[in-house]
Amino acid sequence: MRNLWLFISKYNAFFLLIIFFVTSLIILVKNNNYQRASVWNSSNQVVGTAYERVNEFSSYLILGKINDSLALENSRLRNQLSSSFRNDSVKQVLVNDTNLVQQYTYTVAKVINNSIHQKNNYITINRGQKHGIKKGMGVISSTGIVGIILNVSENFATIRSLLHTETKVSANVSGNIGSLVWGEDNFDPRYAELKDIQSHLAIKKGARVSTSEFSLFPEGSNIGFVSRIGTRKGDNSLDIQVKLDTDFSKLQYVYVINNLLSREQLELEAQNKTE
């Protein structure tokens, strides 16, 4: 104790310095906004950095749990998304006319899958049995014919596109009837071939090509126009290239044609075979 007292009295200047200096600093920090703010800020920064590090580490440990909760939330939000809901409402317009009996009704459908670069192209639409779609119905777009319904499920239907080697459509050009095919020589989705037009017939370039009364499309539905005429060797028919009205690459909405009289027609024609 005595030694300690001697030590303190020997270096009294230093201890006095500490006492007075610390007192001044306390007064300084307590009474001056700028210095107080600096002290608080820096201490907060130190504490904040420490907390941040700890937080970083602990959040790493519960990453799995967070992942699960996020996935759960994602699925919940996805269920609320408007794209998760199907529009099941179907608008069919029936016109009541005493003179005319409506033969065709149209069902609007959205193209949800489409191909144009295959040898045989198919289109899928978001309408099916539920909406009265049946196999063999014709499909047109706002610009021209598209194809024929191939398979139908409850909510979807596939269309055998016009761009299919087996699709044949009875077409009318200037009153002459031929059959429209695609994929024999060309695989360009913009053009199709018109066959079985006799070579002596005068077909002009640019003539309109539309469906004939024999097709399952309403008579006069747009197909396209004649873009090139040539002669086929060893054959007495013309080689006609048709520029299609329908741009298959940009197909968005199509109309499925329901022929109200087709059943009657088929039944009648079926009788011919049985007899």
Binding site: A13, F14, L16, L17, F20, F21, T23, S24, L25, I26, I27, L28, V29, K30, N31, N32
Partner: peptide, 28 residues
């Protein structure tokens, strides 16, 4: 005395404790 001088200046300069700290160091 150093502390008192510093505080006196601080009162006029509105920087309470700043000159006092400096004067304390000066005394040492």
């Amino acid at each position: 005395l150093a502390f008192f001088t510093g505080i006196t200046i601080d009162i006029f300069y509105d920087t309470l404790g700043l000159n006092a700290a400096a004067c304390t160091v000066l005394a040492f």
